[in-house]
């Protein structure tokens, strides 16, 4: 069933677009990201519990830490668990990691009330004036938890094959609207009986044009493909708003 609905798409104000009432329908987020000025690009990393968000964050820090000025905000339900892991992993100077408490509601902290996360990002920006990139890792949540565009310029949703190959076709805003879907732990596919072909085909079907990457951090600890995607986001952000203030 389709209906006419008017909304504002960046650069196309006033256009009428059909709205699809199919709850599993894919499509890019219709809202333009918040104006960013000259500040670091903020990338949200979300996804279910244990899918590999912290492992990916650590990998990105290792791979990109020498070429980009970066910092991390973590929202783990156990508050400092992820931050402690990152500090101990030694991938980032501890001053570049901020942990926020989410009041037992991780999705609220990244979506409905982003206050604590914005405060954390601002603290990092004050500490490091020329940051290129802030990674915001959400606490492990369900398939409906996405980042507000007021917090994250772009977002990555991480699912893993051990959650079952049904996850992409279940849909939900995380799978259907995130700018990048990472299907992690593909090294485990055989052991958990997940059919990678089905999983990736479902992901593309659900997401239309939006990017999908299959990843194994045990086989590629550098997260090369995701790191390339992040590099492109940073470059696009720079091209759009100019370099961050020196």
């Amino acid at each position: 069933m389709q209906a006419e609905h008017q909304h504002h798409v960046h650069g196309q104000n006033g256009h009428r677009h059909p709205v699809d009432f199919d709850p599993t329908a894919a499509g890019p987020d219709p809202f333009a990201p918040a104006a960013s000025g000259s500040r670091p690009v903020r990338i949200g990393i979300g996804g279910p519990v244990g899918s590999g968000k912290t492992a990916l964050t650590a990998a990105l820090c290792r791979t990109l830490g020498s070429e980009l000025e970066l910092a991390v905000v973590t929202n783990d339900i156990y508050t400092t668990e992820d931050a402690d892991f990152l500090r101990q992993a030694g991938v980032l100077d501890p001053g570049r990691i901020e942990a926020v408490q989410t009041g037992a509601c991780p999705h609220t902290a990244i979506r409905d009330d982003i206050t604590a996360n914005l405060d954390a990002v601002e603290r990092l920006q004050q500490r490091y004036a020329s940051l290129d990139l802030v990674l915001v890792e959400s606490g492990g949540d369900n398939l409906t938890a996405v980042f507000s565009r007021g917090l994250a310029d772009v977002q990555v949703f991480v699912v893993d094959v051990a959650g079952g190959d049904k996850v992409p076709r279940k849909g939900g805003p995380g799978v259907t609207t995130a700018d990048l879907l990472v299907v992690n732990k593909v090294d485990l596919a055989e052991r958990v009986g997940a059919d990678m072909a089905v999983m990736l085909a479902d992901a593309h079907r659900m997401r239309g044009e939006l990017a999908v990457l299959a990843q194994s951090l045990t086989e590629d600890p550098a997260a090369s493909a995701t790191a390339d995607w992040v590099r492109r986001q940073v470059a696009e952000h720079r091209a759009a708003v100019g370099p961050s203030a020196e």
């Binding site: 408490q101 009041g103 902290a109 409905d112 009330d113 982003i114 206050t115 604590a116 405060d119």
Partner: peptide
């Protein structure tokens, strides 16, 4: 639901 950070206190 006012987004002023109160939910985490």
């Amino acid at each position: 639901r006012f987004p002023g950070g109160g939910h985490a206190h």
